[in-house]
Amino acid sequence: MAKLYFLLGMAGVGGYGYVSHSGWEYSSQKTRFVPMSVKGTPGGYRSFHYWHAGYGGYRGGK
């Protein structure tokens, strides 16, 4: 049991080391690439958000 704990613990410390070094986070962020057709269009970024996420309408607050 001690060996298993040691291995798991070292894996945990290693994971913490990886997170500390790489800047990893548990996050809901998503990444896409702007298509060249959009990127090449002046002001294309303005419409990109609609293109990749659409509009759902925020319902937060009171």
């Binding site: 809901s28 962020q29 998503k30 990444t31 896409r32 690439f33 970024y45 925020y58 607050g61």
Partner: peptide
């Protein structure tokens, strides 16, 4: 104040075109 604003972010890499998108609501009552 007694209101909210919902912000949607796109973090855009100017060179590669990679877009990281996320959102953040702000509300206070």
């Amino acid at each position: 104040n007694n209101s909210w604003v919902y912000l949607q972010f796109d973090l855009i890499n100017e060179k590669t075109g990679a877009v990281t998108f996320f959102d953040m609501p702000i509300k206070r009552y």
